[in-house]
């Protein structure tokens, strides 16, 4: 009887160990290959660079509505919030001052923007 119970304990432990091994392999060793992703999955530095691109374009064509539409590819966050996140990353990662100035201009413009194009 005792031997039978310990056998079941080993089986359950083996099952749990197998699940653990499977999860580790599937999540860490060989995770799913992704493609056709949406921009909100981009790494933070790519997101910040995208915000910088929009800021550079905004300097030449100061249309906050256009900038907001371009930033909208990141999903449900507000354009101002997306730009602010990019600016925060740029500050913490040592982007050049000139780039940070551009991004600040964009953030300020989006904060003031009503969301309705004139």
């Amino acid at each position: 009887m005792k031997s039978e119970r310990s056998r079941w304990v080993f089986i359950v432990l083996a099952l749990l160990a197998g699940i653990g091994l499977g999860l580790a392999y599937g999540w860490l060793v060989d995770p799913v290959d992704y493609f056709d992703l949406t921009p909100d999955t981009l790494r933070a530095d790519y997101k910040a660079d995208y915000v910088l691109m929009i800021a550079e374009a905004y300097r030449a064509d100061p249309d906050p509505g256009l900038a907001a539409r371009r930033l909208a590819i990141f999903g449900s966050q507000s354009p101002e919030s997306i730009a602010s996140s990019g600016l925060a990353y740029a500050r913490s990662s040592g982007f050049a001052d000139a780039d940070i100035v551009l991004m600040k201009e964009l953030v300020t413009a989006l904060q003031a923007w009503s969301g309705i194009s004139p």
Binding site: A14, L15, G18, I19, G22, L23, G26, P31
Partner: peptide, 15 residues
């Protein structure tokens, strides 16, 4: 067998 089934379940969940 329990170990193999466990690995299978883990992979199904992870993938």
């Amino acid at each position: 067998l329990a170990l193999v089934v466990g690995i299978g379940l883990g992979l199904v969940y992870a993938w």
